[in-house]
């Protein structure tokens, strides 16, 4: 049977896909394996330390500044955010982040870093379109999908409570 142009094209496409797949497997052998265990331990250590620091700050607000235990969370978070922004500005937070991975990305300090780093980055483009327009470039996604998932979970919870 004579091969039509389309047949030929399809054949070369599937050949090309196979070549690409083979190469991707081959190249995979040259990549250093991600150090998952070590990274988990580092994340646990730094993430834990950041939380310990938060706990200490909270105790401080309760003991020395007479905050009620259920209200001391607000100044604690504000303090951690301030520290994170300061370290970001001094060019230290990204170095911690490279070492600690999720340990410094997941806590509120990581969120603060994503906002302050974006604000700093776009400072040269002006306060309105630069800083204002870009500071939520990374954090915006967390806010949007955080809100959406909170809404979904809230709806599910309401439905379950109504049924029981």
């Amino acid at each position: 049977m004579k091969m039509t142009d389309t047949d030929h094209k399809q054949k070369t496409n599937s050949q090309q896909e196979k070549e690409q797949k083979d190469y991707q497997e081959f190249a995979g052998k040259y990549r250093p394996k991600p150090k998952v265990l070590i990274n988990c331990l580092k994340a646990f250590l730094i993430g834990g330390l950041i939380c310990d620091l938060g706990q200490l700050v909270q105790i401080m607000y309760i003991k020395w500044f007479d905050f009620a235990p259920d209200r001391a969370g607000d100044p604690t978070v504000a303090t951690l955010i301030f520290l994170s922004c300061l370290l970001t500005g001094l060019g230290i937070y990204d170095e911690i982040g490279q070492w600690a991975g999720a340990g410094s990305a997941v806590p509120v300090t990581g969120f603060a870093n994503s906002i302050s780093s974006a604000a700093l980055e776009h400072y040269t483009e002006g306060y309105v379109l630069g800083v204002g327009g870009n500071m939520f470039k990374l954090a915006g996604s967390v806010i949007v999908w955080g809100t959406v998932s909170a809404f979904v979970v809230g709806v599910i919870r309401t439905l379950i409570t109504m049924m029981t």
Partner: peptide
């Protein structure tokens, strides 16, 4: 990529 001071971890590659 990301802002220079963003603390995301980069892989060895």
């Amino acid at each position: 990529r990301y802002p220079t001071e963003y603390g995301g971890q980069k892989p060895d590659t």
